[in-house]
């Protein structure tokens, strides 16, 4: 058993986007704060800190999670994926990201990281989703800019592309 006393910092080691990474956290530190301010991975955003808005959605050991409802100490030894891990190379966009760009599926971009993480995870699990399935997934996210239609459109396009249909138009960063 390990008991981590309050008010002390404890080492947290994880695989972040495939690379080993570590930092210190008090037991009460949220994973959002740990990723952003301890590790410096500020791509994961904080919108509500009560699990509703979805901006902080990340993947922990292959499962979607609200980083704001997760303690940093809970991910010790886990593999965490964040938006910083989505692009195939620093100067290129992944297929889903490119679909977002093509379809104007973002405006301010604040909620986008969480939405990308949900979709990235989902499209790997459900290669040929129906629009209703994608809608159901996206109800876990709030976006105030786009009215959602372009997000849905980008998601369906990315799904079609992943399923082997040709992209409408190639677009890289």
């Amino acid at each position: 058993m390990s008991r981590l006393p309050a008010d002390q910092h404890h080492a947290v080691r994880l695989m972040l986007n495939g690379k080993p990474c570590s930092g210190d956290a008090e037991p009460r530190m949220l994973l959002t704060d740990f990723l952003r301010h301890e590790i410096g991975a500020t791509g994961t955003h904080v919108g509500c800190e009560h699990g509703v808005c979805g901006a902080c959605t990340v993947e922990i050991d292959g499962k979607l999670a609200r980083a704001c409802l997760t303690l940093a100490v809970q991910v010790d030894g886990c593999a965490v994926r964040t938006v910083e891990g989505l692009a195939p190379a620093p100067d290129r966009l992944g297929l889903l990201q490119a679909a977002f760009k093509r379809n104007h599926a973002l405006q301010c971009g604040f909620c986008t990281a969480g939405i990308l993480m949900s979709l990235d995870h989902f499209l790997r699990e459900v290669p040929k989703p129906s629009e209703q399935e994608v809608r159901d997934l996206l109800t876990g996210h709030l976006c105030r800019c786009t009215g959602y239609t372009p997000i849905l459109r980008a998601a369906m396009e990315a799904a079609a592309e992943l399923a082997g249909e040709p992209a409408k138009e190639k677009s890289d960063a």
């Binding site: 938006v83 910083e84 966009l93 093509r102 301010c108 971009g109």
Partner: peptide, 16 residues
């Protein structure tokens, strides 16, 4: 045209 803002925002490099 495609937005110049997007690549930064889509890769988590925005500076909010």
């Amino acid at each position: 045209i495609a937005r110049v803002e997007d690549a930064t925002l889509l890769t988590g490099r925005g500076r909010f």
